[in-house]
Each structure stands twice: as C-alpha cells, then as structure tokens.
Design a protein around this nucleic acid. Structure first.
Length: 556
DNA sequence: AGTGGAATAT
DNA sequence: TATATTCCAC
C-alpha cells in the first residue's frame, strides 16, 4: 500500500518500520486504525490509556517515532497528560469531537496535528512527515538514535531524487503535505526552531497559556456521539478548523444529543457520551464510576496492550438543553403563548426526536420559575396606562430587564462564531442563558462549555425567538442597550439586578415598539394587554387598526 | 389512564 | 445547578 507511486521507488519503502504509538481507548477504533497503519507498513503499538503508553515510552525512550492519540470527551485528561509527558514524541491527535478548545489545547500541549475523523488514508499514511520533520528540526546533535536512521534515510532519498525536476507526490493523490515537506527539509537545518506540522496551524509548544483550555462544551461532546466511525472517507478531513465545521457541528448537535439519549440507539461509535458528567480536568477517570471507558481502559494491563479496551458504555440520559434546543423551546412557548404553553404542545411544536414530555415539563418548570423571578407578580399586572408614568415605570421596569437578552441575540446573532482569539469577555457568555448575558467575567470551567460555539447562546431565557428571520429583535436590543450598561452587576446566579431602572424614554421606546410593531414578539414581561386597554392606547396614538397579535392571536 | 405542575431526588 | 423523577390533583 505504501509507496505505490513510481517515483516512490526511490524512496524505497520509507515509512516502513516507523514505530507508531497508537493511543485510543476505543477498541474498535484502535483496531481499525492499527490495521490501516500496518497496511501502510508502520509498526503499530496500541495502548488503551495514557498510563500504559507513557510507561512504555518511559521504559524505552524514543522507541516510538510518532504517536496517534484519539481524544474524546471522556479521555481528555489522559490525553493532556500524555501530551505533557511525551513532549518529545510527535503526537497526532485524532478525534470525532469538534471542540475547538480541545483542539487548541492539544496543539498547545505539543500535538503536531489535530485530525478529525473519519481519517483519510492519506492523512494516516502521511504521518511519517512528522517524524521527518522532527528529525530535521531537532537540531543536528539532538537527533535521537531512533531518528538518525530516519534522517539519513531521508537524506539519501533526497539525493536519489536529485535531478528530478519535481519533488513529486509521494502518493497517488496526496495534495498538499508531502511536497512542501520534502522541499523544505534540505534546508531544514537552517530552518528555524518551529516544528510545524505540515498541515496544522500550530502554536509553539508550551507557549500558550492554558488557563482556560478546559473543555467546555457538552454540546461539543455531543458531537462526538455521532456515528464516529463512518469508515467511508467521504468527509473531507480538513485539518483547518473553520467556522463551517463549527456550524455543521452545531447543526448536528441537537439531533445527536437526543439520539444518544434514546436508549434504543445502539451503535454509538467511537465515543460514548459522558457529557452528563461534567468534565473536570485533572481528575482522570475519577468521576467515571458509572460509565467511562477510561476506567475500563485503566484496568487493562500492560500486557494486554493490544486489546481489551472495549467497554463502550453508557447512554446519557440527561437532556442537554443547549442554547439551540432552548431556543426551540422558547420558540414553541412563544408560539403557544406563555399561558397556553404546556409540555405536550411544546413537544409537538418542537418536534425534537427523543425529547419527552417529561423533559419539557421539567424545563418548563424551570423556565417559569425563572420568569417568575424576573417578573414577580407579573401575572397580576395590567398593561399600564401611559398617562401614568409612575405607574408605567412601576409596571415595566422589571419586564424590561429581560431585554438584554435581545442584545445578546443581536449583537451576536445565532450562527456567528466568535473568533477564537476574541477575548472571552468580549462577547456575552452563553452561560447566561438563564440570566443576563452581560456578565462578562470568566466563567467557572463547567460553566462556559459553550464558548466554542459562542453563537449558540443567541437566545436567552425568555428571549422571544423569532420564527422568521426579520431581525425583529433589534428594536428591543437597542432599547435595552441604552440602560443596561448601568446594570452590569448581577447577583451570583446571573440574574439582573433591579437596582437601576431604565430611563423613562427607553421604556417609552420599548412600549412604542411593542405597540407600533405588533408583529414582533412582545418583550419578556410585557403581557399582551387587554383589547380594551390597547384600543384605548392605540387611539391615543392615532393608530386605528388592530394588529392581529394584540388582538389575541398568536404569532405564527 | 393520561396530563400538568409542583415538589423532591439525583 | 440542571435535570430527572415522583407525587398528586384533575
């Protein structure tokens, strides 16, 4: 399989004999990978957990040329540890998960490349590049014994290649990697320090502060639940991590997380879901009592290196109310009207597979509770008479506090991912789904797990979600923005404080918007007024037609 | 029996 | 804390 191209004859059977450390706690996955690699003439050594792998490395230093490490939501700790402790070994990450921070952290810890599954054969075959790269970048003296032969081999190959006008492809259809690598390596010694993977934008090892590199995102974890082992190489294995990837992941998340919740669902592919238990760095395999392949893997003995990893575990039973899901929920509630929103109907409208009435009831309970906090006694309130400004203010100031959520959805419209370099404080934390999106301080680890998909928090509790994309929240957002700056301090549960009241004119604006544009959803807390009152009001404002929404029918 | 909703458990 | 589960009235 390896070296099939004509021009590879000169390269002999180069990758042959390169020793690959394969760390993957999923048995099936590692077996597949192993056989592929062996087909390519690599020598593969499979490990189920990082301990075994690390001890193998320690016992026989430099006995591996390159490592391939599978990272999943449940084994990140181990993987990070492995990366930390095996800094000398070029390590390629593979994963089903689309978690940017995980990716970033791995790279920061020294991984040379992060490949998303499914892996193409080409990617796999080309892992030798990292070995060569290291061989030439480690500096003349520091080239380890195991790398010397590689280096010499490559040098001789290059000499053989001299005279050919073109470096050529190493494999029949390799597109990007091999050529540049081969071209560079002659001057590699003069090449500066970086050991840069051929296709992965990479940070210098250890340069990056990892203070916030934890992981972060159950939503992301959900992604990996997807039939990871779609062996078809159909998907392009693009190592660049563009927004499109994130977007795709986001789109899938919802379905996946419910699929996984469904007990009947059997084929869970590479990674079982463990998002139910929050990931806590540095607590390897600790909280895995009820599932976690990590445990199983850890129990494996070194002698059993090449097998016995299995134990796919657990189905997650908890529904993860991702922002998307919540958005859908709120949408349904809005559609039904808060008063008429009952679990069964919400369920109907949401049409989310796997979601049960109970799930919704539970969420609804929480939702209502939250609203109650925001709008204490709101139910008893009546649409205030504008003439009585004191009363109006009294009635409105609390409902109004929900507006910042519009801000959230507008300044950062759903579907827009923030650049990774954007300081975390620069965008509203998705964590504030239930509360104010304005708290911009650092979140506890488990709290900011949505960060990578920062677009996802677009809707917050009570934020009326538009059924159609009209940008219709804008007015509210603008209004809200006017006062909310004075209101950035919140209590510990993220609820807005009510100390500062919005300016009267802002309230006026909001009310006016609500009246003038009845097709927009009412801001949270603004109860549809009685027809009578409204008619009164409208006539005062010179409006004679009665918008359908105010008339009692629901936005559809 | 099925539902909604509050209370309670995990 | 978030979500599931239980309980109870209807």
């Amino acid at each position: 399989m390896a070296c099939t191209g004509n021009n590879l004859l000169g390269l002999k059977d180069f990758p042959k004999g390169l020793r690959v450390l394969l760390l993957d706690d999923d048995k099936d996955s590692s077996l597949k990978m192993r056989s592929k690699l062996e087909e390519m003439d690599y020598l593969v050594f499979v490990f189920c957990n990082e301990r075994e792998a690390l001890s193998a490395i320690a016992n026989k230093t430099e006995s591996f040329h390159v490592a391939i490490v599978e990272v999943s939501s449940s084994n990140k700790d181990g993987v990070y540890k492995f990366l930390e402790d095996s800094s000398d070994l070029p390590t390629i990450m593979t994963s089903n998960i689309q978690c940017f921070s995980t990716m970033m952290r791995c790279i920061s810890l020294g991984a040379v490349e992060f490949l998303h599954r499914p892996l193409s054969d080409e990617k796999l075959r080309n892992i030798w590049q990292h070995v060569v790269h290291k061989a030439f970048n480690a500096g003349g003296k520091n080239v380890s014994d195991s790398l010397k032969p590689v280096k010499e081999s490559v040098v001789s190959m290059l000499q053989l290649q001299t005279g050919k006008d073109e470096p050529d492809k190493l494999t029949s259809n390799d597109t990007q990697h091999s050529t540049p690598v081969l071209e560079t390596k002659q001057e590699a010694s003069s090449c500066s320090d970086k050991y840069q993977a051929p296709s992965t934008p990479q940070l210098k090892h250890g340069t990056r502060s990892l203070d916030n590199g934890d992981c972060l995102d159950p939503t992301t974890m959900s992604v990996e639940g997807e039939s990871g082992e779609q062996d078809g190489e159909s998907k392009s294995v693009d190592t660049t991590y563009g927004n499109s990837v994130i977007e795709k992941a986001k789109q899938k998340i919802q379905l996946q997380q419910f699929r996984q919740a469904d007990i009947k669902e059997e084929h869970e592919s590479a990674d079982a879901f463990s998002s139910a238990s929050k990931y806590s760095p540095r607590s390897q395999n600790k909280d895995c009592s009820n599932n976690c392949r990590g445990d199983a893997a850890e129990l494996n003995k070194a002698s059993a290196i090449r097998d016995s990893c299995g134990a796919k575990a657990n189905k997650k039973s908890k529904v993860d109310w991702t922002p998307e899901l919540h958005k859908k929920f709120v949408q349904a509630v809005e559609q039904l009207g808060v008063d008429q929103a009952i679990p069964s109907r919400i369920l109907e409208i949401m049409k989310v597979e796997g979601l049960t009435r109970h799930n919704i009831a539970s969420h609804l309970q929480k939702y209502r509770m939250h609203r109650r906090h925001i709008l204490p006694k709101a139910d008893d309130r009546r649409w205030p008479h504008p003439r009585d400004s004191a009363q109006r203010s009294h009635y409105l100031h609390k409902p109004v506090m929900a507006f910042p959520q519009f801000h959230s959805s507008h300044v950062h419209p759903a579907g827009h991912a923030y650049p990774a370099w954007m300081p975390p404080g620069s965008y509203p934390s998705p964590v504030q789904m239930w509360g104010s999106p304005y708290y911009s301080g650092w979140q506890p680890t488990e709290s900011w797990h949505w960060k990578p998909y920062s677009g996802m928090h677009a809707d917050a509790w009570g934020c009326p979600v538009m059924p159609s994309p009209q940008g219709s929240c804008l007015p509210f957002h603008q209004n809200a923005a006017g006062f909310h700056n004075a209101n950035e301090m919140h209590n510990r549960v993220g609820m807005p404080s009510f100390d500062a009241y919005p300016a009267e004119e802002i309230i006026d604006k909001i009310v006016k918007e609500a009246i003038d544009k009845p097709w927009l959803p009412l801001p949270l807390g603004l109860k549809p007024p009685s027809t009578e009152t409204v008619l009164n009001e409208l006539s005062k404002k010179g409006i004679n037609s009665i918008p359908p929404r105010i008339n009692g029918s629901h936005l559809r």
